[in-house]
Amino acid sequence: MKEKSLRKQFRLTKKVFGVPYILFLLLFVIIPLVLILVNAFLDSNNNLTFDNFKVFFTSSSSLTVLGNSLLVGVITTLICIIIGYPIAYILSKMSSGKILILLYVIPMGVNFLIRTLATKAIFIALGVELGMGTVIFGMVYNYLPFMIMPLHTTLSSIDNSYMEAAQDLGADKATVFFKTTLPLSVSGIISGVTMVFIPTISTYAISQLLSNGKIFLFGDSIQLSFEQGMYGVGSIMSIVMLVFVLLSNFIMNKFNRQGNAARRSLW
């Protein structure tokens, strides 16, 4: 009788398949996060201290770098929307759009480092001076697919009859777009913005390669701190970065709920 109940307990349910995943999360997400949190309060001799906070929040250098990163993130995201939305819109209207979108997705299969190095080689061959412009180009180039994909999914899943109804009721093309298509695709825009903005504020390889290290972003700053053995300050920076990621996620979610558009987005 007892054996039977034991066996019953160990039934191969769906939950069992979740165990490896939970273990993985615990080992490689939760524990490192705890380590960062602990390190943030330790000085180089492993004593409890709050100096790391003071060092970070009072130094103009780290705050400038953070400001730089946020600005680059905002600019990249805006450019991605401006370029990405029309492309996604046109592709969703075309019958061959599903195939054409592959053209944007296939380059994502190539490692981003290789793509960035190739971009750098092209810039050098063209004689373009490496700097802020090239960094933003590289970022937009790398993250544009992340903007187009969710937008395309959302746009192509909008029922055409809404647009037809609007036209029947006398709206011209622009009105149809701004009053039906755009509000209905808000969820796509939001997931696109999340997918682009969050990685761009933490990026560092692209900025380093495409500016020869002249553009110094928050990711570079974190890397430098850890390289120099300044674990405390590095941990604080990581936490600040995490806060920004969570904050932007939270804001996006808020927006998404307000928009309450069709939750058919891929992401």
Binding site: V55, S59, S60, S61, S62, T64, V65, G67, N68, L71, V72, V74, I75, M132, I136, G213, K214, F216, S221, L224, S225, Q228, M230, V233
Partner: peptide, 25 residues
């Protein structure tokens, strides 16, 4: 060493946000 690293960070990030960036925005 720590103050040296801080100095290096400031020097590398230049005089704060470059003006051209604000122009782009």
């Amino acid at each position: 060493n720590e103050s040296l690293v801080q100095m290096w960070q400031r020097a590398k990030s230049g005089n704060g946000i470059s003006v051209s960036l604000w122009w782009i925005l």
